[in-house]
């Protein structure tokens, strides 16, 4: 099991994490905007996460914390 958390207010909605997730479980939360005015990334299906940290590796803003 692995867990990924997003520091919402630092996300700029660049979607690079979305593009690299092998499990395709990251999506942009289009229901809310963070204080920068972006739709932040989030994971709804956490139990599919394998903790590969690809998302965090490609994130330019250290938004993503990965636990395993």
């Amino acid at each position: 099991m692995a867990k990924v958390s997003f520091i919402q207010e630092k996300c700029k909605g660049c979607k690079l994490c979305v593009s690299v997730c092998p499990k395709h479980i990251i999506k942009m939360n289009d229901q809310s905007l963070n204080e920068k005015g972006y739709h932040p990334a989030e994971i709804t299906d956490m139990d599919k996460c394998i903790g590969c940290a690809f998302c965090a590796t490609v994130c330019p803003d250290c938004v993503i914390i990965v636990e395993k």
Binding site: M1, A2, K3, E9, K10, K12, G13, C14, K15, L16, K36, Y38, G51, A53, A56, T57, P60, D61, C62, I64, I65, V66, E67, K68
Partner: peptide, 21 residues
Amino acid sequence: MAIIFQKPKALKDTSMHYCPG
């Protein structure tokens, strides 16, 4: 579970001004 990826200590918490991506 242990943290295996997070912001390095040598980087401050300040949000960076660079463009998205």
